[in-house]
């Protein structure tokens, strides 16, 4: 096996909301350019983990964490510029969020916040991101209409375009298909297959089969603990080597 340094390295990570523990000393890493699937029942700490990685967890009152999370070998807790860290990581939330701006401004929002203002640069970037998110053809004639007025599936692709607009090296998707139709879901999965060539993807999903289709490795997170993390072929095989994993993947968990 090759030994390139991990893109993300999590060590002894624990977290709490107030006194309520979420993660219990979990350790794992994400390799550069892999797709890591994360599966697990609701409330098991998947969203919280993603929020710890891009340091938006600290924006919730009462949230605490210990242990280390490194991105490109740098402890996220001590990065000089947290906004730069967040731009390095694209984040797609479960429910599509069109900002109350035009479609164009939705995608141009992050680059503008980062200081990009040349019209031609922005134009090119907006087009590129909307193409990557497979939305360009549908909206290219109405870039100045409101992003909030798009359909749910379109808004989710707009959200992905926005997450790509600050040219992240890592893309985190949190149950992106929870509120959209199966056809759009498949289109976004095709998008991800393209994107994986260039960036590292963490795919939290409520559809275990989605992880099977897309993820190189899959992590089963349950109750704040990693039950199993292995190549997806293993996790989704008839004999993953862990009874809980088998039960969850085969829908007899309870």
């Amino acid at each position: 096996m090759h030994d390139s340094p991990p893109k993300i390295k999590v060590e002894q990570f624990s977290s709490w909301y107030g006194d309520k523990p979420v993660h219990k000393e979990i350790s794992f890493h994400v390799r550069a350019n892999e797709v890591l699937g994360i599966i697990g029942p609701a409330q098991s700490g998947k969203t919280t983990l993603l929020r710890a990685i891009n340091r938006t967890l600290e924006l919730t009152a009462g949230a605490r964490s210990t242990g280390t999370i490194q991105v490109d070998g740098e402890d996220v807790r001590w990065v000089a510029n947290v906004y730069e860290l967040r731009r390095k990581i694209g984040m797609v939330a479960p429910l599509p969020v069109g900002l109350p701006l035009t479609i164009y401004d939705n995608v141009a929002f992050a680059p503008r916040c980062a200081g990009l203002s040349r019209k031609s640069d922005l134009d090119a970037l907006v087009e590129k991101c909307l193409r990557q998110a497979a939305l360009w053809d549908e909206v290219k004639d109405r870039l100045d209409s409101l992003g909030t007025k798009l359909s749910g599936g379109q808004q989710q692709r707009l959200t992905i375009a926005r997450a790509l607009s600050h040219q992240p090296e890592i893309l985190c998707l949190d149950e992106f298909s929870i509120a959209i139709d199966p056809v759009t879901t498949m289109r976004i999965e095709e998008v991800l297959k393209e994107l994986r060539k260039d960036i590292t993807i963490i795919l939290v999903t409520n559809l275990t089969q989605q992880a099977r289709r897309l993820a190189d490795r899959t992590m089963f997170l349950w109750n704040g603990e990693i039950i199993q993390l292995d190549r997806s072929e293993v996790i989704f095989s008839e004999n993953p080597g862990n009874q809980k994993t088998y039960d969850y993947v085969h829908g007899i968990f309870g």
Binding site: N54, T56, L59, Y83, E84, L85, R86, R87, G90, M91, A93, L95, V97, L99, P100, F109, A110, C113, A114, T159, R162, A163, S165, H166
Partner: peptide
């Protein structure tokens, strides 16, 4: 709140 979170996620102050 989701608007704010979306902005923070893309590195807005």
């Amino acid at each position: 709140m989701s608007f704010r979170e979306a902005c923070w996620n893309v590195g807005a102050t």
